[in-house]
Simulated scan of single mutants.
Amino acid sequence: MVTDTLGLLLVVAVIAANIGDRDAATGLLGGVRRLHRAITLVWADGGYTGDLVDWCRQRLALTLDIVKRTDDMKGFVVLPRRWVAARTFAWLMNSRRLARDYEICPLPARR
Results as ranks from 00 to 15, higher is better:
V2T: 13
T3A: 13
D4C: 04
D4P: 06
G7Y: 06
G7A: 12
G7K: 11
G7V: 07
L8K: 11
L8I: 10
L8Y: 13
L9N: 11
L10V: 02
L10N: 03
V11A: 03
V12M: 13
A13K: 15
V14C: 06
V14N: 05
V14T: 12
A16D: 14
A16F: 04
N18G: 00
N18M: 01
I19S: 03
I19N: 04
G20T: 15
G20M: 04
D21A: 04
D21L: 03
D21Q: 07
R22N: 06
D23H: 03
A25Y: 00
A25S: 07
T26V: 10
G27F: 11
L28H: 05
L29W: 03
G31N: 15
V32A: 01
V32N: 02
R33K: 14
R33P: 06
L35V: 02
H36F: 15
H36K: 08
A38P: 08
A38N: 12
I39E: 02
I39M: 02
T40Q: 01
T40H: 03
L41S: 00
V42T: 01
A44D: 04
A44W: 01
A44G: 10
A44H: 06
G46V: 02
Y48K: 03
T49A: 08
T49I: 08
G50W: 03
L52H: 03
V53S: 02
D54P: 05
D54Y: 07
W55M: 10
C56G: 08
Q58S: 14
L60F: 08
A61R: 15
A61L: 14
A61V: 12
L62P: 08
L62R: 08
T63Y: 01
L64W: 00
L64T: 04
D65P: 01
D65T: 12
I66K: 02
I66G: 00
I66F: 00
V67K: 03
V67T: 09
V67P: 01
V67I: 14
K68Q: 10
D71Y: 07
D71S: 14
M73H: 14
M73E: 15
K74G: 10
G75F: 05
G75I: 09
G75P: 09
F76G: 13
V77R: 13
L79A: 03
L79T: 07
L79M: 05
P80H: 07
R81G: 02
R82E: 04
R82C: 07
V84H: 04
A85I: 15
A85Y: 09
A86M: 12
R87G: 09
R87Y: 12
T88S: 13
F89Y: 10
F89Q: 07
F89T: 10
F89V: 12
A90I: 09
A90C: 09
A90E: 06
L92S: 05
M93P: 00
R96I: 05
R97Q: 11
R97E: 10
L98S: 11
L98K: 11
A99I: 09
D101G: 09
D101W: 07
D101T: 12
E103F: 08
E103S: 10
I104N: 10
C105E: 11
P106E: 00
L107T: 06
P108K: 08
A109V: 14
A109S: 14
R111N: 13
